[in-house]
Write a protein that binds this DNA or RNA. Structure first.
Lengths: 219, 219
DNA sequence: TGGCTTGAATTGTGATCACAAATTTCGGGT
DNA sequence: ACCCGAAATTTGTGATCACAATTCAAGCCA
């Protein structure tokens, strides 16, 4: 069966309908709660959120434009299945943009920020031991976003988040094999470089952290 | 008056309606045919293309998601007005991605491609003497796209094209003051580096070409 | 003259419907 | 068993309508 049901918050939600649908679907995709290739329908989304097809269509159109969802030539909607070549590309873009964001954040990285990052990183570790893939992705991205917010580069951050979105459905299975291999202390290296104010070390640590997922794919 | 009329091709167009609207508007924005801050309305777009509001809404939603159009909190649609800080950011992203694309294209740059680039570049020069801003933008971007297509990196190219889209409305006035100042032979430097197979020189030339527009803004 | 209020027009949002294309399902033939 | 074809269902697309919010304009008062 391809119909999709999802318990949606129905009474107190504020804001426009299509934005609520958009935001919820966006989170589900970004945090890997939907497997790659999952089929969605406008009517299914509509009934899930207690709205008509119209706002569902707008939300989906928006997500397709951002690469969070795929659309076949006939208009069928699925979560994207990322091929290896595309995955390599997206990782390469991350490896270009995220060190730059980290660099721009470096002069503004107060001790309070570093402490907050340390706290988030402990949450990441908790998610690893809890085998919570979605929670791991969520807290890992929060670690990066918290750092990059200090860069005061909203356009660059938005672009990076678009990359995270596109990688979302693939990340889950990618990080499922992460247990055995990777999970080296890249985040700790990032924190150390921040404390030391070492720009080159920071760039390197971020690049390593970003490309780690790709490396275990080629094994 | 805020109503907008546009003579649109009406009879032979194939494909879905919203995609025809999307493609036309996208070109108009990317090539700087719409000034920054231009107001658009769904009904106006609809009547321009002889379609209802529905496909107009989808096209606009898609373009807003790509940053080609802006939407106020109340839903009003305008072409984006780029502030200096955002402009600096977008140029920085271009300066990161486009040299990488050029590098990836370098090993695949046959002499035939270089000839084609030379031909496009002569068109660029023609547009400069003709004072055709839109034609200049179009041919200039075609120069870059033709090169980057050889990189076989569709995701990266798509991301760069999104940047061009966002810069579209601003580019026109940016390049209007280009006559007096810039227009150094960056493209020629790119061609020379391609012929020589010099990766570092290519990276530098592309970066210079990309950031030239920004430099004349800070004057 | 300048600023504010009120009314009319404009505009985006969301629901509903008809329609065509595609997918799926099911049955018969080899 | 397997493959193929026709019917039935599902699905996206586009049009139309009602509605609320916003915007704009005229007009009034200070």
């Amino acid at each position: 069966m391809t119909t999709n049901q999802k318990t949606a918050a129905q009474p107190p939600e504020t804001g426009l309908a299509h934005e609520r649908v958009y935001r919820t679907l966006r989170h589900q995709v970004m945090f890997g709660e939907l497997p790659p290739g999952e089929a969605l329908t406008l009517r299914g989304i509509g009934t899930s959120f207690n709205v008509s097809m119209t706002p569902a269509r707008e939300a989906v159109r928006r997500l397709v434009a951002e690469g969070a969802l795929s659309m076949s030539a006939s208009g069928r909607i699925t979560t994207p299945e990322i091929g290896n070549d595309r995955l390599e590309e997206l990782a390469a873009i991350r490896a270009l943009l995220e060190p730059e964001l980290a660099c721009r954040a470096l002069p503004r990285a107060h001790p309070a920020l570093i402490d907050r990052l340390r706290s988030i990183n402990s949450t990441v570790d908790q998610m690893v031991v809890k085998q919570d893939a979605s929670g791991y992705i969520r807290s890992n991205l929060e670690f990066h976003r918290t750092l990059y917010l200090r860069a005061q580069a909203p356009a660059m951050l938005a672009m990076v988040e678009t990359l995270w979105l596109q990688l979302g459905p693939t990340m889950r299975q990618l990080y499922s094999r992460m247990q055995r291999g990777g999970r080296l202390g890249h985040h700790r290296a990032i924190l150390a470089a921040l404390r030391a104010g070492d720009e080159q070390a920071l760039k390197l640590a971020v690049r390593e952290d970003v490309t780690q997922g790709l490396r275990m794919l080629s094994v």
